[in-house]
């Protein structure tokens, strides 16, 4: 469904963030993208919906090639791709409801959105989603009144109300505590399963990735160095991705956490 061919990005400073990435994401697959800071994870995600313009290669979403689309067609294509951000990126001074409905902006004309007169079907869907993530009672609160975990749920609703085929998730848990992190990861993977959504999740917490996703892609210096199941991430592999370090603790942590999880 999503196919990246030889995708490259060279920043104006000369830094090669992506060096010919090729990646295939079938429909409904949730994939974790791991790698050290600066490996190009964020750039890769942003090159797909062209928040960052790729310098070369192709991005195919179903039968559309995205890198050469004009402004109007790009907007249409972006509606198919929901994005979730690290620091939530909610519009702080708008209410929860407005933030969720902003996910429909690609479908609604300017004046309707400006006057907040969204179609009733969109409003119904917004209430359904807020209910699904357990925030129905918060609909009228301003986004900056919410806690981190709640904000990220609103971010998820905003992405889902677009009715996308693909979720691009950029470090969804980096600003959250361990428990909330898991709840958010579980929510994202559950929702993807419910709706048959594919997702690319940038994540630096290897243990968390292993816990929730069936496929892990490791990125190092803009190149894919690992692509496989979560259990194939041996200390050797992690060393290849991140550099030398004692990985036994990380891997053991996963098992410990699973026990805690079971105890809960």
């Amino acid at each position: 469904m999503l196919r990246l061919k030889n995708l490259t990005k060279t920043y104006r400073t000369g830094d090669q963030a992506l060096k010919g990435i090729g990646l295939d994401v079938p429909k409904g697959q949730v994939l974790a993208l791991i790698g050290p800071s600066g490996a190009g994870k964020s750039t890769l995600i942003r090159c797909i919906n062209r928040l960052v313009e790729p310098t070369g290669g192709e991005v195919w979403l179903d039968d559309t090639e995205l890198t050469h689309l004009g402004a109007g067609a790009l907007r249409k294509a972006r509606r198919e791709m929901g994005m979730i951000f690290q620091e939530y990126a909610l519009v702080e001074r708008l209410t929860v409801m407005e933030n969720v409905l902003s996910g429909r902006l690609g479908y609604v004309g300017f004046w309707r959105s400006f006057l907040r007169r969204f179609p009733q079907s969109d409003v119904d869907e917004a209430f359904r989603l807020l209910d699904r993530v357990g925030l129905l009672h918060m609909a009228d609160k301003r986004a900056d009144e919410l806690s981190g975990g709640q904000r990220q749920r609103v971010g998820i609703c905003r992405a889902l109300i677009q009715n996308p085929k693909l979720l691009l998730v950029d470090e969804p848990t980096a600003s959250l505590d361990p428990k909330t992190s898991r709840q958010i990861m579980r929510l994202i993977t559950e929702l993807c399963a419910e709706r048959g959504l594919a997702a690319i999740i940038n994540i630096h917490d290897v243990a968390l990735a292993q816990m929730f996703v069936p496929r892990v892609v490791g990125l190092r210096f803009g190149e894919i160095v690992y692509d496989g199941g979560p259990n194939g991430l041996t200390p050797d592999k992690l060393t290849e991705i991140y550099g030398a370090e004692d990985w036994e603790a990380t891997i053991r942590k996963v098992e410990d956490e699973e026990e805690i999880e079971a105890a809960e």
Binding site: L51, R78, G82, F85, V91, S102, L105, G106, G155, Q162
Partner: peptide, 10 residues
């Protein structure tokens, strides 16, 4: 925040 709104296809 601007990026997030652009990413919705606005």
């Amino acid at each position: 925040q601007v990026e997030a709104i652009s990413a919705t296809g606005a």
